[in-house]
Design a protein around this nucleic acid. Structure first.
Lengths: 222, 222
DNA sequence: ATATAATGTGACCACCTGGTCACATGACCA
DNA sequence: TGGTCATGTGACCAGGTGGTCACATTATAT
């Protein structure tokens, strides 16, 4: 946690520091981020920095907190009340919120990407330990409920689907910002819908005759 | 490229250096990897290192070359002759080869993960620029051919599917090594098959009556 | 045995890192 | 005005970085 001296700082100064920190953590993963650059870019003295934060990590966690809070603002009512909606509607909203968040706050998204890489960095494990329980605990029951409702195939591996959807949630943001960096809203929506459709219906041609269905698993005598 | 002095080195010494380098790049991303640690762990003098390699980057690219070559060995005949097989058979083999490679060479896989994170690091962009053309150029036509053959839905976005499959190829390795670090062969095969099944058929319950099919895209008046 | 070339070596370089600390500055109060 | 206390400051620290270089060692060839 930042020290009181930081909290009591004039808004302009506090903002300057915060902005410089976000820039730095967006440009470099935690280990490579430089306190020297941050203080230089925010126009404060090195010594002052350590009166505001106990650590580089202290600052980093503070920034992550800002990001998390802003991210929550992007969760639509649909996601907050997931039980009242179709499963695919919920994850569609989730994907969309991710894409929109990344477009509205590209620097925040960059920070997130930097921490999501380096998964074996100690700092990641700390964050993960804190955040995972909530995210996973919230989502798995959602899938189970979707199965109960008959929206999702009953033979699905819940853990695996959970993992895959989480992975897709990241990939789709990457994909959208890659094919259309300016990210027109409609393009993103179309991409998300296409993703959802793939997830929902699969990519197999449904018109195809199912002659050779049995040997779906071949070449491995396990 | 390593200098001749490195190529001409006695096998034991060359191996010691290579091993130490792999360990280092598996433990740290390129920027944080330390030449000092590498020379210490391989028992050579700092000066000697720079007679073998021009750079830290030179060594890194050498190691990446080793990994790429070993990875190629894991590509089954099915992948080498993709046109002769069903599309889903090909990507099944691809996923499997990825999982098996990661199990057989965990350090290599760790190096790969470290470079796949830090996507904005200069070193990544260099590698990507070199490797992407081949990987993408090879795979996209495969999807197109699958569509022509009627194996895959014709209304699919080829670019997106390509992206998604590439992303899944990474996620599934992560998933497999997470649920079963020792990675029994059968477990991995089952997981891959489950993934393929999801990709193929989607997660929607096919038995469900398609009453509310039309309003699949709702809540966005785009 | 001697000259020459190739290779091994670690002290050293400039630079950067996160973090500290003695001191300067300034605000507030008596 | 003088005293007290919170805040601002940058020189400084130990330690690490990638990379160099003058020199020692070894191998080769004459």
């Amino acid at each position: 946690m930042p020290r009181d001296t930081f909290i009591n700082l004039p808004d302009a100064k506090r903002k300057a520091i915060t902005e410089a920190a976000i820039d730095e953590f967006a440009a470099y993963p935690f280990e490579q981020a430089s306190v020297n650059r941050i203080v230089a870019n925010s126009g404060i003295a090195k010594g002052s920095f350590y009166q505001y934060f106990v650590d580089k990590e202290d600052l980093f966690l503070y920034v992550m907190g800002l990001i998390a809070q802003e991210k929550i603002n992007y969760l639509s009512p649909v996601i907050r009340n997931p039980d009242e909606h179709d499963f695919f509607t919920v994850i569609r909203e989730m994907f969309l919120s991710g894409v929109q968040f990344a477009r509205a706050h590209p620097r925040y998204a960059a920070v997130g990407r930097n921490v999501l890489g380096n998964k074996q960095a100690p700092i990641y494990r700390e964050l993960q330990a804190a955040a995972r329980p909530t995210s996973f605990a919230l989502f798995e029951p959602l899938i189970e409920k979707a199965v109960d409702r008959g929206e999702v195939r009953a033979d699905i591996d819940v853990g695996m689907l959970n993992y895959m959807i989480a992975a897709m949630n990241v990939s789709i943001v990457e994909y959208c910002s890659e094919i259309d960096p300016q990210s027109i809203y409609e393009t993103a929506t179309e991409s998300v819908d296409a993703f959802i459709d793939l997830l929902k219906n699969g990519i197999r041609n449904p018109d195809r005759l199912v002659e050779e269905q049995p040997p779906a698993r071949l070449s491995a005598e396990s």
